[in-house]
Design a protein around this nucleic acid. Structure first.
Length: 134
DNA sequence: ATGCTGACTATGT
DNA sequence: TACATAGCCAGCA
């Protein structure tokens, strides 16, 4: 847990373009800002797009450092199982995330899961879900 | 400097 | 479907 609210804020990642320098967190935030409204993506995907392939965990840590009112759409990031990791976490932010997603039209199944096939963010540079996408 | 922990994921039982 | 394990990173005691 990051634990230092003033150190790892979001800031920097402001641009929606390519972030070649800066900390890993900055690159992570930059990627998440590209996720369109009404879509969701996973920690692992964000990690890869940020050039941190295989470091899904780091993405989660980066998001935990965000503060209320951040311009980063953190709620659009869910785990590979299509569930909200926050629900399982201590923080009660799970409800907030759920609310924000529903407000964008993202449907959460009765089991508390989201269909990545339907709401998953599709990146142009083809990568995942090549076929049978829907 | 060493150890622990946490918004993850893939794999095996 | 649920639980256990092992990688992997960064920040703090």
């Amino acid at each position: 847990m990051p634990a230092d609210p003033r150190a790892s804020i979001e800031t920097t990642a402001g641009r929606s373009g390519t972030v070649t320098a800066g900390s890993s967190y900055d690159r992570i935030y930059a990627v998440i800002r590209k996720v369109p409204r009404g879509r969701v993506t996973t920690y692992g995907t964000v990690a890869r797009l940020a050039g941190l392939d295989g470091q899904a965990r780091l993405v989660g840590y980066a998001l935990s450092a965000l503060r209320t009112g951040t311009s980063v759409p953190w709620h659009r990031v869910i785990n590979a199982q299509g569930r909200l990791s926050l629900e399982r976490a201590k923080s009660g932010a799970g409800l907030t995330q759920r609310m924000l997603l529903q407000r964008e039209g993202v449907v959460i199944n009765p089991a508390g899961r989201i269909s990545l096939v339907r709401f998953g963010w599709k990146v142009k540079s083809g990568k995942r879900q090549a076929a049978s996408a829907r």
